[in-house]
């Protein structure tokens, strides 16, 4: 007997790798995190996991460090995302100009995005080392400062340095996406506006920005989620210090899980982050009106 599959069965089989991948790498870890958030789990004793109800959530919500980390995460995410969006759009507009050698600049711009975070963070630690770092050396040499700046040793400067690193590394992502959209805006729109006497700012406000609105909405949602969850940059640059001044929620969850051996508490913090981001993203998409035009059409 010859075994034959129907078109529908073949279709399901072709989808199977994706379903498996999403199940294994997305659904299962989230489900496991939710499960862990209801048990007490010391990773050194993986076989002993008593159910503790909402204790882990109560622990997190009553911990002053969680709330400190939460507000710092808002500052870190807010400034990083706003600066990336503003600088990213500015750079994309510059790179959209038909100048000679522009392609080389576009290629170079990707550099920070390509280099692994660990390399960048360790390099920045050296650059911003207040004793032997080149940043202080250069600023002192040209007379811009009189004494060394403690870039990573005071709470405000450490947060500013961490934000600077994040902006430097991820602005190219915004540039690429915005530039791609800019290149698809019909030039006739600008020509017509010029004929009607619209200046540069007016053309930017009434043509470019509305055309970029949807892509910016997507970029800002992604950058907000990725930055809010960001762990390795802060961990490698400041480890949350000095004090706990650059702690964010990702670092809080890591420290609870690994340093404090409270995997359940770390998982609870992770689930709270998931809920916060989900709610924030939905609110932002609703407010920004993303996709409304398509629905109307």
């Amino acid at each position: 007997m010859r075994f034959r599959l129907s078109d529908r069965q073949v279709g399901v089989l072709f989808m199977l790798p994706l379903i498996l991948a999403v199940g294994i790498f997305l659904v299962w870890p989230i489900a496991e995190a939710v499960r862990l958030s209801f048990v007490r789990y010391n990773p050194l004793r993986p076989d002993d996991q008593p159910f503790v109800g909402l204790d882990n959530y109560l622990f997190v919500l009553e911990d002053p460090l969680f709330w400190e980390s939460f507000w710092q995460a808002i500052v870190w995410t807010g400034w990083s995302t706003v600066l990336q969006a503003v600088i990213g759009v500015g750079l994309a507009l510059l790179l959209h100009q038909p100048l000679k050698g522009m392609n080389a600049f576009r290629g170079l711009l990707l550099f920070p995005y390509i280099v692994p975070t660990v390399v960048i963070a360790l390099n920045w630690r050296w650059l911003f080392n207040s004793e032997i770092g080149i940043v202080n050396h250069l600023l002192l040499s040209v007379g811009l400062i009189d004494e060394k700046i403690a870039w990573l040793s005071t709470p405000s400067m450490a947060m500013a340095s961490a934000i600077m690193l994040n902006v430097w590394k991820y602005t190219p992502f915004v540039v690429i996406v915005v530039l791609a959209r800019l290149q698809t805006i019909p030039t006739e729109l600008y020509d017509a506006a010029k004929v009607d006497g619209a200046g540069v700012l007016r053309r930017f406000r009434d043509i470019t920005l509305p055309q970029l609105a949807e892509v910016l909405a997507v970029v800002i949602v992604f950058r907000t989620i990725w930055t809010f969850n960001k762990f390795e940059e802060i961990y490698l640059l400041t480890r949350g210090g000095p004090g706990t001044s650059t702690y964010n929620l990702a670092l809080y969850a890591f420290d609870q899980s690994i340093a404090n051996l409270r995997m359940g508490v770390g998982a609870a913090a992770g689930v709270i982050m998931l809920v916060l981001l989900l709610a924030g993203s939905m609110l932002y998409i609703r407010v920004s009106g993303f996709g409304r035009e398509d629905k109307a059409a």
């Binding site: 207040s130 004793e131 040793s153 000095p242």
Partner: peptide, 16 residues
Amino acid sequence: MPRSAVEFSFLQVVDQ
């Protein structure tokens, strides 16, 4: 001490 001693770990003390 250097003001940045509040961020020093093993390597930074030796470097210093």
